[in-house]
Design a protein around this nucleic acid. Structure first.
Length: 944
RNA sequence: CGUCCUGUAGUUUAAUAGGUAAAACGCCAAGCUUAUACCUUGGAUGAGCGCCCGAUUAGCGCAUGAUCCUCGUUCGAUUCGAGGCAGGACGACCA
């Protein structure tokens, strides 16, 4: 009996069932890197149309998290699928290397620049630190199976990048987009320098809170503006009352802001100043009057804030007049609904002030002391000056009320002292000056935003954004390499040439070339009239010019990029900074399409974060399930929304992975002994079922390629997984087993099946390669036949054309499948009753009308193989026998099924129950078919 | 506080100019032992409330058939509109 087992062609393969990905992947990776797979891929793709996916540089600080993995893997899937589609799709990874977070890390180690170490040493330490971070992150990215030019990434701190960034700035100046202006920044008078947002912490502070009169100059005009006046407009001088907790900012007052929509009321009050009329927001007037404690008061008139725009007010202690302006930032949370506006001392005030073209005069010096010439307060520190201001207000009779208040206030994180807002000169890229906003809006139209709501999002941001302040007062950054006149602040007339000269030096020595530069070297005698700008560029400018410093510089990339792909936070970040610089320099967006993905969240839909402790590290998954499972998860999830990450989901993904792997393994195992060059059959000689399998593959391949082209990877996962379970496991491969195992090794019947499986394998390996990269390339080496060293050097597989025979077309097989399902249900009944075990223990009779009979009988006596029963007969009848089970198929066809255990003996070789088992004395345990296969010429199959 | 996005069985995803909401996984059971740490077949449950019981398993009854909730348009809404809830992205505010 066992001797017959040896006569079967059982599956055999060295491709392991157990993936062992955590161990196997690093080995595979080593091979890729040692063999320079990426370089070989580039060489092979040379001359094909270029597809440029330009990498957005992650910040070179800290370990990578799941979000990084999602981003990089999505990029990698696209790059790999584009290469398979016949593009030359290179991948140049990048890193963002300058900026505050690195400075802070380095400060912790060696101290603050300019205090404990000199700036040059500090920058060297930053460079070294950034490089270490890059190296670390690079290893983690590689581990995910991402193929790219890891030996030549772009770093924003590369000398060439730094030089090109300065050139890019030059171009933007040339096109007239830059201007110098003032902007209030967080300022610590103890540090004597600007603070970044991250260096500010909020604590409670004890401040004076005062209400101040701003007298109205033209009472008549004011009363006229009111929409409702009581019987009498009242008596006494009219004032607008503001409330502030920073009295020291009053010297810089340039306006009083009202909310245009808000209702204001004029209140006649009688107090120590006699009778007067005060304006304040109606919603706050009860609170305020309670605070002020007037003996008598009544409302005499009402108006909207909008009605008072541009009326002039008298400054409470200076001889100057300031306008009433309007702004939505004015609220009724506290105060009087009238906001004292000092553009030099507040972000909101600055924005409102620039809308009204108010002066931004800043009377406060870097040490927090009022500068010389400041009337009344020169030489006083601002917080000490609060009392003087209050005294002055009292003297002038313009103090309505004063009290103390505890509130949250920004403090310097180093000195723990309160900080101030102070207007300082800064460089801007103007949105209007040379029409940048309009051009950018136009450029947005020409980009394909995926998903499409990305367009609305970035448009809204573009419409609202203020001028881009590109200057920073930092150490680790690319310099704004400009010379300005020491008196006029004008740019040097030769700025364009000078920038190029500086860029050439930076190209050789890095940014230190600028900081070390003696102006005389470039300007000669003129140097004494000019100063070197010491500001650095905003790091968003760094990455924002990568289209200029990387895409234009690298010959393997093409401008504009076909695709930028980042998280949806980058609509405000990199997508925007890149768009603005590109439009400013080149007049168009740097990308044809911008694709965004969502963020990783936990089971409850909460964002993953270190502090909550709900984050899952990619390294953990690599080491437990393997990077391919992580990649499969990323592909299987619709990345446009938030991506939920839980242990259960990863476990399910692992299950799905095993299904896919094992299906491939079974295909490979059945290709044992098959050499495509020798043994494959032309499509026309394949059995009908094998032709169907190839046609089905072809159909699926079209769907998969479409899905790759639309970046809908989750559909690919669904389709491939369903194909493995439903088409292959549940049907084709199940049916094939008998033919594979029992027919002669080199028979047409078996070679036909192997030919189909071989083509299937070639195609299948490529389908999954962009996603399950390690597994696909592992598999690749087990597919028989001559082949290149990696699937990543290939393009999509061209499946042989099978003719769609009208008798055996897809709908025919659909009907067979339906019949099979119906028969299975009947067999299950027998199984439950204990009549049969395996389906081969049974035989079925199918009764039907003549039309269906015509179709089903096409398979002749091979129908039993499709049904995996020992016998299957079709009967054309008018009235079926009563005990047959009536079934209506999906297409509406009616059949009647009768199934029963076979009464014949079981052939020990093929397990079919046949009448002729034992008929041959030499092989008493075999059926006739097996005897033919063991001792004769071999059985013939035509259909299945 | 503003702009934008998302919400379908336990899980991941489908679907419909507005027309029966589907698949796979998971779960339970069986079969096979010629894919064997695999594979096949079948099945149930998918939302609530109540009853029975010492408790479990099971059983019974009512209502109802998985598109976040509520309204609206419609013969008909998962789909269109409005409002809410929850989560997310980005920003603003704290005078």
């Amino acid at each position: 009996m066992s001797s017959y087992k040896d006569s079967l062609n059982l599956p055999k393969t060295a491709f392991p069932m157990k993936a062992g990905l955590p161990q196997r992947e690093p080995q595979m990776l080593k091979t890729w890197l040692n063999d320079d797979l990426y370089g070989k891929q580039r060489a092979k793709a040379k001359g094909r149309p270029i597809f440029t996916l330009h990498d957005g540089p992650p910040y070179a600080n800290g370990d990578i998290h799941l979000g990084h993995a999602v981003n990089k893997v999505l990029k990698d899937i696209i790059i790999k699928s584009k290469n398979l589609s016949g593009f030359d799709a290179p991948y140049i990874p990048g890193w963002d290397c300058h900026g505050l977070p690195i400075e802070l890390q380095v400060e912790k180690k060696i101290g603050k620049a300019g205090v404990k170490v000199d700036a040059k040493k500090f920058r060297a330490a930053c460079r070294e630190y950034a490089q270490k971070q890059v190296n670390k992150q690079r290893e983690d990215f590689k581990r995910l199976g991402i193929l790219g030019d890891w030996d030549n990434p772009y770093l924003t701190m590369n000398f060439q990048f730094e030089a090109d960034e300065i050139r890019a700035l030059g171009k933007i100046i040339q096109k007239g987009h830059m201007h110098k202006g003032f902007k209030p920044v967080h300022w610590c008078s103890d540090c004597g320098s600007a603070l970044a947002e991250a260096e500010v912490e909020y604590k409670d502070k004890h401040s004076p809170a005062i209400d101040v009169r701003f007298a109205v100059l033209d009472d008549a005009a004011f009363i006229n503006a009111c929409h409702h006046v009581e019987n009498s407009p009242g008596k006494g001088p009219i004032s607008v009352v503001i409330w502030t907790t920073t009295p020291w900012t009053l010297p810089a007052n340039e306006a009083v802001a009202l909310n245009p929509e808000l209702d204001y009321c004029l209140v006649e009050c009688v107090g120590e100043h006699g009778t007067e009329r005060l304006l304040l927001a109606e919603a706050l007037h009860k609170d305020a009057l309670g605070r002020w404690g007037f003996e008598e008061h009544r409302v005499v008139a009402y108006c909207k804030g909008a009605a008072l725009e541009n009326l002039k007010l008298q400054h409470p202690f200076y001889d100057k007049q300031v306008p009433i302006i309007l702004g939505d930032h004015v609220t009724t949370d506290a105060g009087t609904g009238a906001v004292h506006t000092a553009p030099a001392h507040g972000q909101e005030d600055y924005v409102a002030g620039s809308r009204y073209h108010l002066p931004i005069d800043n009377p406060v010096g870097p040490n927090g002391v009022f500068i010389e010439g400041t009337e009344l307060f020169a030489g006083q520190h601002v917080f000490k000056a609060n009392d003087s201001v209050i005294e002055t207000l009292k003297l002038k009779g313009n103090l309505v009320h004063a009290q103390a208040l505890d509130h949250s206030y920004p403090h310097c994180w180093r000195h723990k002292t309160p900080i101030i807002f102070r207007a300082t000169p800064q460089w801007f890229i103007s949105m209007e000056q040379a029409g940048l906003r309009d051009q950018a809006n136009q450029a947005i139209e020409d980009v394909d935003w995926i998903p499409d709501w990305g367009k609305a999002r970035i448009s809204a941001m573009m419409a609202n954004r203020p001028d881009w302040c590109i200057s920073r007062q930092r150490t680790w950054g690319v310099p704004i390499a400009l010379f300005v006149h020491k008196d006029t602040s004008e740019l040097h007339p030769n700025t364009s040439d000078l920038i190029e000269q500086v860029a050439q030096r930076v190209e050789k020595q890095g940014i230190d070339a600028w900081f070390d530069l003696d102006a005389v070297e470039l300007l000669g005698a003129d140097a004494e009239n000019y100063v070197k700008v010491s500001d650095t560029l905003d790091v968003w400018f760094d990455s924002g010019v990568s289209h200029f410093a990387v895409i234009d510089e690298r010959e393997e990339l093409a401008f504009p990029a076909d695709l930028y792909l980042e998280g949806s936070d980058q609509h405000r970040g990199w997508f925007q900074s890149s768009l603005l610089t590109s439009v400013a320099i080149k007049g168009r967006a740097p990308y044809k399409a911008a694709l965004t993905h969502g963020f990783t969240v936990d089971a409850k839909g909460h964002k993953m974060s270190k502090s909550i402790g709900n984050s899952i590290l990619p390294q953990e998954i690599n080491n437990s399930l393997g990077a391919d499972v992580l990649r499969l998860f990323i592909a299987a999830t619709d990345y446009r929304n938030e991506m939920t990450c839980t242990d259960e989901i990863f476990k399910r993904t692992g299950d799905a992975y095993r299904r896919i792997r094992n299906t491939a393994r079974f295909l490979l195992a059945n290709l044992h002994g098959f050499d495509p060059a020798e043994n494959s059959l032309p499509a026309s000689e394949l059995l009908a079922l094998d032709q169907w399998a190839i046609a089905r593959c072809d159909q699926l391949q079209t769907e998969i390629r479409d899905a790759y082209d639309c970046y809908e990877f989750h559909l690919i996962y669904q389709k491939v997984h369903n194909f493995c379970s439903v088409d292959l496991g549940g049907f084709y491969l199940d049916v094939l087993k008998d033919r594979q195992y029992t027919t002669q090794e080199n028979s047409q019947a078996r070679r036909s099946a192997q030919t189909a499986m071989y083509h299937m394998m070639e195609a299948f390996c490529r389908w999954i390669a962009p996603i399950l990269s390690f597994t696909a390339d592992e598999m690749w080496r087990f597919i028989p036949g001559q082949r290149s060293e990696s699937v990543f050097l290939e393009t999509w597989y061209e499946l042989p054309q099978v003719q769609q025979d009208s008798n055996f077309n897809l709908s025919f097989w659909q009907e067979i499948l339906q019949t099979r399902i119906a028969v299975s249900k009947e067999l299950e009944q027998l199984r439950v009753a204990g009549d049969i075990g395996s389906s081969l223990d049974a035989e079925v009779n199918i009764y039907c009308g003549s039309e269906i009979f015509q179709r089903l009988s096409q398979l002749e006596d091979e129908l039993r193989f499709v049904l995996i029963t020992s016998d299957a007969r079709i009967h054309k009848v008018e009235t079926p026998p009563g005990q047959a089970k009536h079934v209506v198929l999906q297409n509406g066809d009616e059949i009647w099924i009768q199934a029963a255990a076979s009464e014949h003996k079981k052939c020990v070789r093929c397990w079919h129950h046949q009448e002729d088992v034992g008929a041959n004395g030499e092989h008493p345990e075999l059926c006739g078919r097996c005897i033919e296969n063991v001792a004769g010429d071999g059985e013939k199959r035509r259909y299945a």
